[in-house]
Design a protein around this nucleic acid. Sequence first.
DNA 1: GTCTATATCGGGATAGAC
DNA 2: GTCTATCCCGATATAGAC
Lengths: 205, 205
Amino acid sequence: MKTKERVLFVSLKLFNRFGEPNVTTLQIADEMNISPGNLYYHYKNKTEIINELYSRFETEMFDLLDVPDIDISIEDAWLFLHLLFECIARYQFLYKDLVNILHRYDKIKARYRRMLTRKQSAIAAVLGSFEQQDMLQASQTEMEALCENVVLSITCWPGYDLIRQGRDDDQIELAKGCYQIMAMVAPFLKESERAHLQQLSEAYV
Amino acid sequence: MKTKERVLFVSLKLFNRFGEPNVTTLQIADEMNISPGNLYYHYKNKTEIINELYSRFETEMFDLLDVPDIDISIEDAWLFLHLLFECIARYQFLYKDLVNILHRYDKIKARYRRMLTRKQSAIAAVLGSFEQQDMLQASQTEMEALCENVVLSITCWPGYDLIRQGRDDDQIELAKGCYQIMAMVAPFLKESERAHLQQLSEAYV
DNA sequence: GTCTATATCGGGATAGAC
DNA sequence: GTCTATCCCGATATAGAC
């Protein structure tokens, strides 16, 4: 792996582990066994590293959020949620200090807010598909509130879980996150689908 | 107001506005029109200011979380939620950088996790009261998942809302937060209570 | 209690040799 | 591309006069 790429790799690792504000460029260089000068040869400052990491995160997310316009099963939705969480977990440093990072990096803030909108649409598409297949029943307002709640949970579960379990290895319980979100959707599912989800949940937990 | 008290007041204001990591002791002193030396006469370091603010937050929260063992109405619950949010909003700096602050201040972390447990119990008490009054019906597992989701939303709504609306005056939409949480509980309410909540919601939004 | 002045430290970033 | 040395600055904290 080339040095420029290694910088990203190691930065991501340290950011995720200790939080971006708590990681210095010197630490990154140390961990890589290169000099700080060398690091600054590849990236002119810390911001550029973060921007590049964010760009990759964004690409991966947008890829996932491109929900195909077909019938979506409960299993599909569950997998979809899981993939979203895995992606977020790979870049969990963003979510550990979300407000702070968006406050300090205005460009990322704008981009992130666009992503939130896309997330909302993606969730709406999934739930809409459930509705069309007659698997789910909810009023307009119920649907909107549900969407918002799901997006909130997707966004905040990783950070919340870290606090909740208080472990120090920064392992996020993704499966539990999926479960919690599905539990929000469940009451709106029709009887048979609800039972089906119940089965899946039991296997998962 | 005595200087020692003013330090807390102004610190809280600035922390809430800009985020604790982004506020220096010099800024606090400037804003108060006192010298940094004077500030350090009253508090030997920044940590002590934060600890004192946290203690007050904790006191106010524990006060609220002491849910009386009586029948709780939908209106009571709504008010309860609102008071919780108002308290959180007063100390929103904690929630803007929750993971980071708990990471840097180990003592606060331990205390905060205890508070989370109390929060969970309080929510369980409210929902339990609904159940006892035959206003709500949910299985054991549904109840547990619902509790966890409510606690998550209470914890994360303030930070999430700030990102979502992207305003810069840091005004959190508390009412909307209550509404969203109630929307999670609604599907488990019996028909008449659900309609009642629906009415309240419409008035609120 | 309050001020001014200053010490100290750490992190971000650059210069210039190799 | 990589290193060493160093600069710069901002933030925390202290010393000592008033």
